[in-house]
């Protein structure tokens, strides 16, 4: 048996995204990241104009806001409850939007238990370090940890 460090696997969809990135050159990874930026869903009506309901991710270079819903209500209690993610970032911040888009596609609709099990180093598994620089990846690390924190709070008994 290997004595190497344990690697926690990514959830299936996130893992597919990671493999898609891994198959590309650094330049094409940027293009794929742009697709995620373009495809990031709009904030639903009930949140737009309600910045007080959103959490600001200060670690991103550009303003990004996010909010997590658990099972459609603010406080569901089961590990099986469904997690919904909503993001807001301006078009002038495509890198930040792209990070949000990856997390949206990879995590939206998973259960509380599945989201909480996502490894904290997930953002480093898309091969984006050389494409966007490791410094810039910190924003995605912060997004993930704030998502998990909100899920933890909103799914608590």
């Amino acid at each position: 048996m290997s004595a190497g460090p344990v690697t926690v696997p990514l959830p299936a969809v996130l893992d597919e995204i990671a493999q898609d990135f891994a198959a590309l050159s650094a330049r094409d990874r940027l293009t794929l990241l742009l697709d995620f930026s373009d495809d990031l869903p709009e904030l639903p009506e009930r949140y737009s104009g309600h910045d007080e309901l959103l959490e600001r991710v200060d670690e991103c270079q550009s303003p990004l806001f996010l909010v997590v819903e658990v099972d459609g209500v603010p406080n569901a209690s089961s590990q099986e409850a469904t997690v919904r993610l909503y993001f807001q970032a301006p078009p002038e911040a495509p890198t930040t939007r792209g990070f949000a888009g990856i997390l949206h596609e990879g995590l939206d609709g998973l259960t509380v238990g599945e989201v909480l099990a996502v490894p904290d180093d997930a953002p480093y598994r898309f091969g984006l370090g050389e494409a966007v620089s490791p410094l810039r990846l910190r924003g995605m690390v912060a997004m993930l940890s704030r998502i998990k924190r909100q899920v933890r709070i909103k799914s608590a008994h």
Partner: peptide, 9 residues
């Protein structure tokens, strides 16, 4: 740019 993807948009 500061944002590494802004040019691509």
């Amino acid at each position: 740019d500061e944002d590494v993807l802004l040019y691509e948009t």
